[in-house]
Design a protein around this nucleic acid. Sequence first.
DNA 1: CACTTTACCGAATGATCGCTCGGTTTTCCG
DNA 2: CGGAAAACCGAGCGATCATTCGGTAAAGTG
Lengths: 208, 208
Amino acid sequence: MVGPPERPALRARWERRRRAIVATAARLFAERGYQATSITDLTEATGLAAGGLYHYFEGKDDLLTAICEELLEPLLERAHEVERESLGARDALAEVMTIWLEHVAAHRHHLIVFSQERHAIERQARWRHLRAQRKEFETILAGILERGEADGSILFEDRRLALLALLGMVNYTPVWLRPRGRLDAAEIAEGYLRILLGEAGGGSQASA
Amino acid sequence: MVGPPERPALRARWERRRRAIVATAARLFAERGYQATSITDLTEATGLAAGGLYHYFEGKDDLLTAICEELLEPLLERAHEVERESLGARDALAEVMTIWLEHVAAHRHHLIVFSQERHAIERQARWRHLRAQRKEFETILAGILERGEADGSILFEDRRLALLALLGMVNYTPVWLRPRGRLDAAEIAEGYLRILLGEAGGGSQASA
DNA sequence: CACTTTACCGAATGATCGCTCGGTTTTCCG
DNA sequence: CGGAAAACCGAGCGATCATTCGGTAAAGTG
């Protein structure tokens, strides 16, 4: 049977090891694909034998679920915290984007796996809750943009397209992000925000 | 043996059918994932038996190759055409983005598959040419942005980040795009261009 | 220390999958 | 029409894979 031990002294260790396996699995799945990664690959990478893995997870898809939950749940919680601060839309957007990019940078493999397996998560009933969490986060973002447009603090040519563009930028970030790259998460968040709000340069001259 | 027939009368039909199989496979792979789609799934969707499929393709990965080639080759060719027109950077960017989005909209499943299987394409030697084509297209884009900054027709806060943001937006587009949605490909291209160049609204008021 | 829970092992299992190949039907062409 | 090439079939093969389970070792508990 899978689940944390009843003895309190062992719970912390069980959870720590489980999280370590999730992190390893996220890296392997991101590098090779979920289906293309075999249980044998996981045993080699974790040092556990097959039976040992099934002591922490009910199956391979339970591992995928854990990866996505570790990505979505803390992000959603922190986004709700920002909402509770009742900032102006402009500042709320800046703050959500900063925590978002920091979370994504710290969980790049998780997001890559989530994006790669999106087709499964969006279609299969067993992942309804992940779908709901993704939607909830997007709804928070949409709300901030709408609020910003309503109170005049943000102007969009097309607000709905701006949200989709933002989701695209951020979801693509872990594909190119390298741990000690030129920009850190906060700088990327600021850069994206500038692009989205059209504050950079101002753009145009006449065309040639 | 796989390959087009020697008799000229049959070549056109062979190629037409091959392309039809590629289109069907692209849809299935996009919906279920490449690895999760079995040959049996493909036989059901195409009406061909297993042996029939292997008359057009050497294997499942040949099908993946064909999908990616159908995505990248025409796009690259059309991008080179735009370059040959020697437009100003601003106009060149607008034109490349329009053909890009039109191509992506017409091949949404292809791009979804390419993105989902990116880990394999980027890592395995047999897909070196696909990797080279992707890089070549990105180099064309980078060149246009650089040219635009050099001649003052485009101003960026961070040109490299702007390119990555653009790639993110466009690569994410097929995830949400619906065939007869609110915006067509040209309108999306225009919207993205406005976001990238900061021409919309002008953005800011004071923050709250 | 005894005893129970927890942690882990790894060979065996059953199912699935990509692919092959001998054969049949269809299509072209002289 | 007759022969050859092409198109297609589908049962079966070998390999792989996720998962199970009977067992052992280690750790906490009273």
